[in-house]
Design a binder for these strands. Structure first.
Length: 591
RNA sequence: GGUCUGGUAGCUCAGUUGGAUAGAGCAUCAGCCUUCUAAGCUGAGGGUCAUUGGUUCGAAUCCAAUCCAGAUCACCA
């Protein structure tokens, strides 16, 4: 049981004994004691005043007295300031805790429950390479999956690839027109970038054609429809849907190039999936559900044949679910895919990591599933995250302001290499070891940068300023892990129970923090929020760093003190490593 | 216009669901490496928590209104 739970429980029991009234954890608040006061945890008395009809000071005194008398193994002292009962936790309690967990690599993780969760993330389009926004999505999705696993869930990572549609045809057309038969192999360009370049080429040509038509007197909206390259693209989409062999062949070939490129990037950034879904296989799903909905009168067919759902009573709008030609739209596929996931895996919860620009869409999806009475409707959860913006505003591919994922990772690794060389602490590393280290540090900095911010909030990335390696960053945390590793390499730990020590303030601070790790994992899981982990791990590293500078471990005042500090350091290293792992970040033993 | 987010130090962000004098990092300034890794540590300056009301022992946090910024409301995905 956590110290917080023990504290709540003993408080409730004491209140029962003292006042013959039954309280629950929600009836009073427990916080960590502010550093300017004496004590470790504080119970706030004010909320008890009304029901007990006693002053906060009186309750605090009686409660404090009773607690230390009844639970001497937990509490050693108390004091009251205003309505705050500050409790000091017994040193023995901490000592036992440390002895029990200092070498426990599973500390903080929950036993398996029977829940199965699917986390869908990444969702790339096969017409362009991944960019900074995808990175936030990928890191979030992967980390959330990991965190849910640490909370005892069985987790499936999935990915829906948008591999068909008009945007894919655009790069196909452009390649036919301007490609001269070039391939990634012949040009030496990574497949996803190669195809992305043709997508850009399409837009350039399209703009040019529209401009020409307008110059010849056509109205702009009409010109946008009539541009030959656009008409060709639309024709190609129809051919694709009709299964025309040469179009299908081209489509397969170009998507194949993109996947080769994606594989490299995914491997590099540490994304992986248990299940891939392809829109080309799912885009027809959901139609039968629409049919059922029509029969139940949840959907309505308009005169032109299109099918709609009226959500105005729920504060939303009317939403189209089938076009008049009978083809399905995005939301229809999503309903179908949700059904398929449920049928296939019997998942208890389905988490969709999707940007907040699609909040409305996801709301509609959920509402439709609910109205259809689908059993999983309430278990669909949209993990909505804010866009990554530049100081100048949104990233726009048309204006060439998109920060490319591959380029960014390259830069981060280069930066890591430069810093490492400058410091010259790993001169004995082999070429391969150095490469691995640069990757660990560079990617660690990037992941931490994107994960330390609350997912819900949009964030600003300034490409002018490179991502920092000092302060509240991944490398700072990695550095502290390396420092601890270094100390532990040179000083063996004795497993005997360490006794007879009281804690210095920084030692106490560290152990109180370590004890909280399980609750942080739980919070991060409940909130689907990796930033809770990031902030926590940083706080641990920072506290350790102060402790490390202030007190010598190897040359402690006594052998007992040395053992205590070694155990503290060991547990700190384990928690840092474990927490960073939940973020998808590795920690080196040397850097 | 409707709906939904958000507004905290010069900048980027925290703030444990209502608790004690609102915290970090970056940037600025001043110190600290003959001892375990200085990607570090210590300290200083920097705030009308967008504004105004309300709720109560107590509000950055809850409620209302206003201002500002963004997203969305497609027979696009």
């Amino acid at each position: 049981m956590s110290i917080l739970n023990s504290l709540q429980k003993s408080t409730i029991e004491s209140l029962q004994v003292l006042y013959h009234q039954t309280f629950s954890e929600k009836d009073f608040q427990v916080n960590q004691t502010k550093p300017e006061f004496e004590g470790d945890y504080t119970v706030v008395m004010f909320s008890l005043v009304k029901s007990l009809k006693l002053s906060p000071e009186v309750i605090g005194n009686q409660l404090g007295e009773h607690l230390i008398k009844t639970y001497p193994e937990i509490f050693s002292a108390y004091n009251i300031i205003k309505g705050f009962l500050n409790l000091t936790i017994a040193d023995d309690y901490w000592m036992n805790f440390l002895q029990q967990h200092y070498n426990d690599i599973c500390f903080g993780k929950q036993a398996m429950n029977n829940k199965k969760v699917m986390v869908e993330y990444s969702s790339p389009n096969t017409n362009k390479p991944l960019h900074l926004g995808h990175l936030r999505n990928n890191f979030l999705g992967w980390s959330v999956a990991e965190i849910l696993g640490a909370n005892g869930n069985t987790v499936l990572k999935s990915c829906i690839v948008n591999d068909r549609g008009i945007h894919i045809c655009k790069s196909m057309i452009a390649w036919q027109l301007f490609g001269n038969g070039d391939t990634p192999q012949s040009t030496g360009i990574k497949g996803d970038h190669f195809v992305g370049d043709f997508y850009v080429k399409f837009n350039d040509e399209y703009k040019k054609q529209v401009k020409e038509l307008v110059a010849n007197g056509m109205a702009e909206p009409e010109a946008e429809k009539e541009a030959p390259i656009m008409k060709a693209t639309q024709q190609m989409l129809q051919d694709w849907e009709a299964g025309k062999p040469d179009v299908i062949e081209l489509w397969k070939k170009m998507n194949g190039w993109v996947y080769e490129g994606f594989d490299v990037t995914y491997k590099r950034i540490g994304s992986d999936f248990d299940k891939m879904y392809y829109e080309s296989n799912t885009y027809l799903l959901g139609k039968d559900i629409v049919q059922q909905g029509l029969e139940k009168n949840i959907f309505i067919r308009k005169e032109d044949g299109s099918v709609w759902i009226d959500l105005t009573a729920d504060g939303l709008d009317e939403k189209l679910v089938l076009r008049k030609d009978g083809t399905s739209v995005y939301i229809t596929q999503d309903i179908g895919l949700a059904q398929q996931k449920y049928d296939e895996y019997k998942i208890d919860k389905s988490i969709h990591v999707i940007g907040d620009e699609q909040n409305y869409h996801m709301k509609v999806l959920q509402l439709i599933c609910k109205k259809m009475g689908l059993p999983y409707a309430d278990d669909i959860h949209h993990l909505s995250y804010g866009m990554v913006e530049l100081p100048t505003g949104k990233m726009k591919s048309r204006e060439g302001t998109v920060v490319d994922a591959d380029d960014l990772v390259d830069e981060m690794e280069k930066e890591a290499a430069a810093k490492t060389e400058e410091l010259g602490k790993v001169k004995d590393f082999s070429e391969d070891e150095l490469k691995a280290l640069y990757h660990t540090i560079g990617l660690g900095a990037l992941k931490f940068y994107l994960l330390r911010v609350d997912p819900k909030k949009k964030m600003i990335f300034n490409p002018e300023e490179s991502i920092d390696f000092h302060g509240f960053t991944g490398p700072f945390i990695q550095f502290n892990h390396a420092r601890i590793s270094s100390v532990l390499r040179k000083n063996p730990i004795n497993n005997d129970h360490t006794t007879g020590n009281s804690f210095l303030p920084l030692e106490k601070e560290l152990i109180v923090l370590l004890e909280k790790y399980p609750s942080v994992i739980k919070q991060a899981g409940d909130e689907l929020n990796p930033s809770a982990i990031a902030i926590y791990v940083y706080t641990i590293a920072k506290t350790f760093s102060s402790f490390y500078t202030e007190h010598s471990i190897a040359n402690a005042e006594s052998e007992e003190k040395k053992q205590l500090r070694l155990k503290l350091a060991n547990m700190t290293a384990i928690v840092i490593k474990s927490g960073m792992q939940l973020l998808g970040i590795n920690v080196p033993d040397r850097m």
